[in-house]
């Protein structure tokens, strides 16, 4: 009231303060990644120092050594297969069920919807042991399939597809029928291509979830036969936690695909996660 002249400058100060605060926040959140990078390229002398050395020395020996410590290629291959197969399974089951629940009237449809929603209420932690028992009886222990099948259908994906298919005009279905399409041809050529944003969302969320999967593969994998990167990384730290440089390099190695995907699909990824929360 009294200092109307001071107001604009006060606003300016506030704006700069906000920018400074944002810079600090961003730096704080990125610091762990940065420090891991510094550690991974540190020389031996620069690791155990106090205060910690935050300037990289660009010694890549630990990156080279990481690859001699464990068959990372094999583990990455496992993780890629598991993640890829899960994405495909979730997409296929999600598209089919979502389509049926959106567009195919059948007796029991409401029951199926209710059953699916009820499935969301089951905390995965609580059924860890029976899941293991089921996997044992299906001979899925210590296998790649065992890390895909339990995640092969996702209720959230089903509902996302259902919501989307419901928005498609009936005329598209009619038109494609006139063009000679059967229901699966309609799905393949019309509905699914139009659902590309949903496909993308489901793919991204499944990718993030599967690449980070830990407890289940920890439990069901034993030897090298089906071990994914996260489990391998966990063991590596367990075998000798004092090899910080190699561990930092290995951690960054398993983080790399996440970083790449994040940089490429940032916006879509964030909105997917936001959408995931709304269900």
């Amino acid at each position: 009231m009294t200092n109307t002249a001071a107001r604009p400058s006060g606003r300016l100060v506030r704006r700069w303060a906000r920018f400074a605060l944002m810079a600090v926040v961003a730096a704080a959140f990125l610091l762990p990644f940065y420090w891991a990078l510094v550690l991974s390229v540190a020389t031996r002398a620069n690791v155990f120092t106090m205060p910690p050395d935050l300037v990289p020395s660009w010694d890549f020996i630990s990156w080279a050594r990481v690859f001699t410590l464990a068959p990372w290629g094999l583990y990455f291959l496992h993780s890629v297969i598991i993640t890829g197969a899960t994405i495909i399974a979730v997409l296929v089951t999600g598209v089919l069920a979502g389509y049926a629940l959106a567009e195919v009237p059948f007796r029991g449809r409401e029951v199926v919807m209710g059953v699916l929603l009820a499935g969301l209420m089951v905390p995965p932690e609580a059924i860890l042991i029976p899941n293991y028992v089921v996997a044992y009886h299906l001979h899925l222990l210590n296998s790649l399939a065992g890390q895909v099948v339990p995640f092969g259908a996702n209720v959230f994906a089903v509902f996302l597809f259902r919501q989307f298919f419901k928005t498609l005009p009936v005329e598209l279905w009619d038109a494609s029928r006139m063009d000679g399409a059967r229901w699966w041809q309609y799905l393949r050529h019309i509905a699914v291509p139009l659902a590309r944003p949903v496909v993308m969302t489901v793919t991204l969320l499944t990718f993030v979830a599967q690449w980070s999967q830990f407890q289940w593969p920890l439990i069901i994998t034993q030897g090298n036969g089906a071990r994914p990167v996260e489990v391998a990384l966990s063991y590596l730290q367990g075998f000798d936690g004092s090899h910080w440089r190699e561990l930092a390099a290995a951690s960054l190695l398993t983080l790399a695909p996440i970083f790449v995907v994040f940089l490429l699909t940032q916006r879509h990824l964030i909105s997917s996660v936001a959408g995931r929360a709304q269900i």
Binding site: P169, E171, L172, A175, S176, I190, P193, R196
Partner: peptide, 10 residues
Amino acid sequence: VFQNYALYPH
């Protein structure tokens, strides 16, 4: 031929 044409948008 449909009223709204029902062209495939993609």
